[in-house]
Design a binder for these strands. Structure first.
Length: 307
DNA sequence: CTAGGGGTAAAT
DNA sequence: ATTTACCCCTAG
């Protein structure tokens, strides 16, 4: 009983996801040998990768092979997806050797707002400020009004309201917002502390902080994203684009939440990195595959003219 | 080597 | 007390 336990870091998870994207699920040894990921995953065995992937994939999906089908009061107030692809998993025999960075992909018809895979990350802070400013309501705006404004202009993520509430509370506590009864106003001393996500990704380096305590306020549902990732191969271009857009949105949400925990933000920030890494990887996957049969089922016309 | 079963420390 | 998730074991 030598090893007490070694929790997976967000970096490792990100590397694993990226590895699965690149080589496919099941090619654990291949992923492990890839110099791109060996720097992060050199402590893990191929079995570890497989187990971790199972754990991550199982959560939302429920019974993948484990977990008892107990009643999960997962009150999803709005529909999630209409296509139910039961247990079809990724089955690819070829690895795309593309990483030729092209340009951000223009999605047609998708719900992609100002999604820019570059370094343009929209911050919830700014969104809130923008909302309050634009609403121009005397005395400030209610939380619901702010939420509506943001939701109309941007993305409608899963637990956006939760993040917004926490964010508002945080901003008030830090004096950036003033809460007047139930309305929020912008404080004068709005000197924003720029806190960016560290630009370094997984690239041959070792873990820096053991970090025993994982302050886990689950902001993003990685597992769900993973499922989506698996399904992307069988999706139409529009569907895949939508999924990718949501991935980016969640990455941004994670970043916003990261600064909320300014103290022990280490883990949250790492989560944000992981999400962002996934989002970029998702983009590349879509871009990389030269869609053989990506055709609209109904019309039969090829709907991918620029992928 | 991978997939799946199972045990159990740690977290809630 | 129950759930989570890391790790080991073994058949194919």
């Amino acid at each position: 009983m030598g090893a007490p336990k070694q929790k997976w870091t967000a970096e490792e998870e990100a590397a694993l996801k990226a590895g699965v994207i690149k080589h496919g699920a099941g090619k654990w040894r291949t992923i492990l040998k890839d110099p791109e990921f060996s720097g992060v995953l050199y402590l893990r065995s191929n079995v570890d990768l497989k187990d971790k992937w199972r754990n991550m994939s199982v959560m939302v999906n429920g019974y993948g092979s484990r977990e008892k089908p107990k009643l999960a009061p997962k009150r999803a107030h709005h529909i999630h997806r209409q296509d139910e692809n039961p247990m079809a998993f990724v089955n690819l025999g070829q690895s795309d050797e593309d990483i030729p960075d092209a340009k951000p992909l223009p999605v047609s018809g998708a719900v992609m707002p100002a999604v820019n895979p570059k370094r343009t990350t929209v911050r919830l802070d700014n969104l809130i400020m923008e909302a309050i400013t634009s609403l121009k309501e005397p005395g400030g705006s209610h939380k619901t009004a702010i939420a509506s404004y943001i939701e109309e202009q941007y993305w409608p993520p899963n637990d956006f309201k939760r993040i917004l509430s926490a964010k508002l509370k945080y901003l008030v506590a830090n004096g950036k917002l003033i809460k007047d009864k139930r309305k929020y106003r912008i404080a004068r001393t709005s000197a924003f502390a720029e806190r960016r996500v560290s630009p370094l990704f997984f690239e041959g380096r070792q873990r820096i902080s053991p970090k025993i305590e994982r302050d886990d306020f689950n902001i993003l549902t990685m597992s769900q994203i993973d499922l989506d990732l698996g399904r992307m191969r069988t999706m139409t271009a529009e569907q895949a684009a939508e999924v990718a857009a949501r991935a980016v949105a969640e990455a941004e949400a994670a970043i916003a939440a990261a600064e909320e925990a300014a103290r022990e933000a280490e883990t949250a920030e790492a989560d944000a990195e992981a999400a962002q890494a996934f989002a970029e990887a998702a983009m590349k996957t879509m871009k990389g595959r030269t869609a053989p049969k990506m055709v609209n089922f109904i019309t039969g016309s090829p709907l991918n003219d620029r992928f």
